[in-house]
């Protein structure tokens, strides 16, 4: 079935990390971009884990029913947008804490996804397509590592587009002003609540798409263990990405690659203490978080209206 080829040995590890980074990072990328957008408008949505799971279920279910994985992605985005909008509406109410609302919606999203997703655990849905960027290589491993899903590429494009939007467009400026200072936004004539609501809904939609990647491409099936904290982790990634979309991309890739380290090291025979290797991405993120935090009260780059940075 496979052509014999020389054993890559330890060289397999960097290759596995590269491949893993591309495969595993996509959900982190989408959720962190969504959270980045939401937080730039001055709101925290800790509930994106729930949106991710709901998106995974909705996407898989819609793809099963319609036979089209792209309709699945669309449905996941829609479900995510609705959940994001719900978060936005709740947080608009006076005295309602956005962190607590996020936790509540995380619970509700996961609950709804598990409740409504029961009939979709067994069926097999069509997968999203991938582009074989490794066509030039003889090695099936290189080819497998460079088999890149379309959603990952769209995520990369989106990161660039968001970065440009924040820097160079009026929409981006409005979002930033709304996030940095309510007073300035009012002075500017921006519709504060509408902007926040839309940013939160759009952020939710992106998290939903991240969920669809999980269920429709990698690992590519719907079950109740499909998400293991990716949504929560992505919120952490935004903080050390300093609310910059391109750095979100870097953070997602770094975290995905670190996640591939555990299995890759076992594959070359380093198995003792494997639980600790699996913890590597979390330790790495924590280390970076501590290293990049500043003792001054406000975090550099943090939107001024954000509840977690105040």
């Amino acid at each position: 079935m496979m052509p014999a080829e020389p054993d890559l040995g330890l060289w397999g590890v960097p290759l596995a990390i590269l491949g893993g980074a591309i495969r595993v990072s996509t959900p982190f990328l989408f959720v962190s971009l969504g959270e980045c957008l939401t937080e730039r408008a001055g709101r925290v949505n800790l509930g994106l884990e729930g949106t991710l799971v709901l998106g995974a279920m909705t996407g898989y279910g819609a793809a099963c029913e319609s036979g089209s994985p792209w309709l699945g992605v669309g449905a996941a985005a829609l479900a995510g947008a609705l959940f994001g909008a719900l978060h936005g509406i709740l947080c608009r109410l006076p005295r309602v804490n956005d962190i607590a609302t996020g936790i509540a919606l995380m619970l509700l999203g996961i609950g709804l996804a598990f409740f409504l997703g029961k009939p979709f655990i067994q069926p097999v849905a069509p997968d999203l397509p991938a582009i074989p960027f490794g066509w030039w290589s003889e090695s099936p491993r290189v080819r497998a590592a460079l088999n890149v899903n379309v959603l990952f590429l769209m995520g990369c494009g989106l990161a660039v587009a968001l970065a440009w939007m924040f820097r160079a467009t009026r929409v981006g400026l409005t979002i930033r002003v709304v996030g940095d200072s309510s007073d300035a936004a009012r002075a500017m004539g921006a519709r504060l609540h509408t902007v926040r609501l839309l940013a939160t809904a759009a952020g939710g939609a992106l998290a939903g798409v991240g969920g669809a990647y999980l269920s429709l491409y990698y690992p590519g099936s719907w079950n109740e263990g499909i998400a293991s904290g990716q949504g929560l982790m992505a919120v952490a990634l935004v903080i050390f990405a300093r609310w910059h979309p391109l750095r979100c991309l870097g953070a997602a890739l770094l975290f995905g690659g670190a996640g591939a380290l555990g299995p890759a090291l076992q594959a070359v025979g380093l198995t003792q203490g494997y639980h600790l290797f699996y913890a590597a991405p979390y330790v790495l993120t924590l280390g970076l978080l501590v290293a990049t935090s500043s003792p001054a009260r406000a975090l550099a780059g943090a939107p001024g209206e954000l509840s977690i940075s105040r």
């Binding site: 800790l46 929560l232 639980h275 330790v283 978080l289 500043s294 975090l299």
Partner: peptide, 28 residues
């Protein structure tokens, strides 16, 4: 307090590390 590290995120990360540590200790 010392470095202004976000405690919400740090505690989440530390929980994952703690669970890995627990698994390592009871399996190892």
């Amino acid at each position: 307090h010392l470095r202004g590290v976000n405690e919400t995120i740090a505690s989440l990360l530390m929980a994952y590390v703690a669970i890995a540590l627990m698994n390592h200790l009871v399996e190892g």
